[in-house]
Design a binder for these strands. Structure first.
Length: 255
DNA sequence: TTCCATGTTCCGCA
DNA sequence: TTGCGGAACATGGA
């Protein structure tokens, strides 16, 4: 689940449920999820605010921040009765409720970091595409002298932080750009279109999700099947591998 | 049983 | 140097 829009939902969920309460205990059910720092140090503290950068969630706990990366199957669950099946870390609050980080495949990370800025710096993350500073000019600069494939570039978190496999395909689909095109060979108009569509796709995804609505049929994500009909031009949807990931695109209008 | 998965990282090779 | 493919990680669902 977790690309930028999903993590944005997690951030809002965290904000709604887990702020302001004293953490009574932190239970680590599977240490493979945790980094090197000791989450126990959160005991007695409260989460004061939440931030997101790309696919990373941060929660301010005073002089340290909780950092969560959701891997492929990470999720949050605030509950009062039974913990979810794949709970890996559980925060017990003094009101008797709990916040569980669940993760079936264990690719996620729950750790502490000095601050979101420090984390972003240490890991060399690029701009968040919904950040104000991510303007067309910045995007254009990222593509300059990049010989790699445009899809690979969109997936690279050091370039832009937050786009994953699904939304990379979606943005390219809307922009009529073939995922194997060389990044530095896109025409000016295409760069602009792609920039606009990256933001639009992510913003719309957040909007649909926050309403609990399904994505409409015009989204490629509803047609991720070899041989399906393109909702935009009637062409044929193809499945291939680009940048090591399963990629769907319309063979007719993506060039 | 086999294949696949919305992520990241590491290694070998061109 | 840059970028690519492949493998690895771990696990359940179709």
């Amino acid at each position: 689940m977790p690309e930028l829009p999903e993590v944005e939902m997690f951030a809002r969920y965290f904000e709604q449920h887990a702020l302001g309460q004293t953490i009574q205990r932190v239970r680590i059910l599977d240490a493979r999820i945790c980094g090197t720092r000791k989450l126990n140090q959160l005991t007695g503290r409260r989460f004061e605010r939440v931030r997101r950068h790309g696919k990373n969630l941060f929660a301010d706990a005073g002089d340290t921040w909780l950092h969560i990366h959701f891997g492929m199957t990470g999720d949050l669950s605030y509950y009062t009765d039974e913990p979810p099946r794949f709970a890996r870390v559980i925060f017990d609050f003094d009101n008797g409720a709990h916040l569980a980080y669940e993760d079936m495949r264990l690719f996620g990370i729950v750790d502490l970091t000095p601050s979101p800025e420090e984390y972003v710096r240490q890991h060399g993350l690029g701009r968040d595409p919904l950040d104000r500073q991510f303007d067309l000019r910045a995007f254009r600069a990222l593509l300059h002298k990049r010989r790699g494939r445009i899809k690979a570039l969109l997936l690279s978190q050091e370039v832009i932080a937050g786009i994953g496999n699904l939304y990379a395909d979606e943005a390219l689909f809307r922009s009529s750009i073939h995922p194997r095109r060389a990044a530095d060979r896109l025409r000016n108009a295409e760069v602009k279109t792609l920039y606009t569509n990256i933001r639009r796709v992510l913003q719309q995804a957040v909007a649909f999700k926050s309403r609990g609505a399904d994505y409409p049929a015009r989204f490629l994500v509803q047609h991720r099947q070899e041989g399906d009909r393109c909702p935009r031009c009637g062409g044929t949807i193809r499945r291939t591998i680009v940048a090591g990931r399963t990629t769907y695109y319309c063979a007719k209008h993506q060039r």
